[in-house]
Write a protein that binds this DNA or RNA. Structure first.
Lengths: 309, 309
DNA sequence: CCATCCCATAAGTATGACTTGGCGGTCAGC
DNA sequence: GCTGACCGCCAAGTCATACTTATGGGATGG
């Protein structure tokens, strides 16, 4: 059964005449007449009686009209629902972010997004980059915020789009009482901490630390390993270690007992947004990507503005 | 929104791939691909993500699928309902019949029809031919069983089809004790009852009676007028009048106190089925017409068989 | 690394959808 | 009783569009 014709039939029933329906539809009378004929042939029974002043529905026509009305209502509902999704008056976007971003950039972006589109349902899931990638591949999230240390080949299949949105410099974190704790603005070479005990971060961060130290000519004595940046700072504050932490982790939570200095010669890690190649055409995803890049750009400007200020 | 494409999209969702949907539909892959493209363009958002192993529905796609499922269900229901109407497993047919037929031919036809199509809803409304015509014109009944006396121009607009289905001879009805009551099989001339008091039937029947008597050379003394053939016979049985009644009225109810003789020179009235020109294409109507003509034919055969028997 | 399985694109064809033009029938009003 | 208005059907022509064929690119898996 041709559903399009059903809606034409509905117009015939409304106008109570074939010519009237044609006028409503902006067609000529024979066009509508032919549609009706096809419909009746398929139905196997007349749907209307042709009478001098127009048409009158038969029992079958009345039955069909009820269904046509229901179908038209559904089509209308579908149109409205899609419209809402396109205009971001509805919809969901699911984000995955690594912990330190989840505590800083992402909430800011979500807040911005909520202001722009109050009815958008934004959901955050914390995940380290490898797991975030899995979530993305499985379709469990729409956008993943990940990072890659300098020198690492950024993960992600060819299926995905990788959008760099900013850099996150790494800082050397020491106990306040440490001889190298000052001056805070002057970069410190890793090598000066060659004899210290170290605290590493997540697996990839620890690997990166090892690699950076190697480049500086020593093998670090890594005693602790945790991706909890609060715990890491607590260890450092008590003089149990030193560490190399990303600025974002320090922004998220700063232990008053630690001192921070730029790490000379250590290139910042790069933040990436990952999504399916076509996903940025989805309104909700596009909105989320926009908010995230806006927040990242804002942070970037602040960073650039900071040194002069 | 093109509804047909919605059902194609439904197939894509079911197959979880465009090519798979194409195979299900017996088409080539680009055909389905193009439909999806059009649908997405109209929707203003991607409905699926193209992934290496097939496609994955976006939020908008999932929403649309729900509506598409509902629409498909409605289409299915409509198809089934029409099918039932065509096969006479459902449906209604509304009849109008004049009283004496309503008590004889029509019940027989309805019984026959009920045997053939037990689920058909047949409704009878009693109406004299003029009113039956109005009902038919107003669309309140589908078939009208009417009659025309010989010489009358059968009523009905050009819009209608008139199907003669049989004749109903008129009989002279007398009190049993009347000198002319015998012999029952021999036709009696109206003129022999010129001096009697008469009982007329309905308006048109009374007019016909007057006309028939005029043709026989006298003006009848019509004392009573009722379309109730039971009442008329009661009057006659008590010797209060004589009458000219159609055979059908006598078949419907025969007062034991009356005698009946063929009326010489009075041509029978003709029974007609009336319906809209296209109405006989409607299965329920076609069924009813069939049953009515079958019964009429059967009655006709019985009549022809009677004289020899 | 090649074979396979997805899908997209481009161009060609053919079905069928809508228009034009013409006709018959019914009804209302002069 | 005839004429004009309305409503519908039919036939033929044109054009849109819905498919096909052919081709190519990206991802996956032996």
């Amino acid at each position: 059964m041709d559903v399009q014709r059903l809606l034409i039939f509905r117009e015939i029933a409304r106008a109570r005449s074939i010519g009237g329906a044609a006028r409503s539809l902006g067609w000529t009378q024979p066009a509508v007449s032919q549609h009706l004929r096809h419909l009746e042939r398929q139905a196997g029974t007349p749907l209307v009686l042709r009478r001098p002043r127009g048409v009158q529905l038969t029992e079958a026509g009345q039955a069909l009209l009820r269904h046509a009305d229901a179908i038209a209502a559904r089509v209308q509902a579908a149109t409205e629902e899609l419209e809402a999704l396109v205009q971001l008056r509805a919809g969901t976007v699911r984000l995955a972010a690594f912990p330190s971003a989840g505590a800083t950039v992402v909430p800011a972006a979500m807040s911005l997004l909520a202001g722009r589109h109050p009815h958008l349902d934004v959901r955050l899931r914390e995940a380290e980059p490898p797991q975030a990638l899995d979530l993305l591949a499985a379709g469990d999230v729409d956008v993943a915020l990940t990072f890659a240390h300098a020198g690492e080949t950024p993960a992600g299949t060819e299926e995905m789009v990788r959008v760099p949105i900013g850099q996150d410099p790494l800082r050397l974190v020491l106990p306040r009482s440490h001889p190298c704790a000052e001056p805070a603005d002057v970069p410190l070479h890793l090598g000066e901490l060659a004899q210290e005990k170290w605290a590493g971060g997540c697996e990839r961060c620890t690997a990166h630390l090892r690699q950076a130290c190697e480049a500086a000519g020593f093998a670090p004595d890594i005693r602790h390993g945790t991706d909890d940046y609060v715990l890491t700072q607590a260890l450092i504050a008590r003089g149990l270690a030193v560490g190399l932490l990303p600025q974002l982790a320090l922004d998220a939570a700063r232990d008053p007992g630690v001192a921070v200095r730029p790490a000379a010669g250590v290139r910042p890690r790069v933040l990436y947004l990952l999504h399916h190649r076509e996903a940025d055409q989805i309104p909700a995803v596009r909105g989320a990507l926009g908010a995230l890049t806006d927040i990242a750009a804002r942070a970037c400007r602040a960073e650039h503005a900071a040194p002069p200020g």
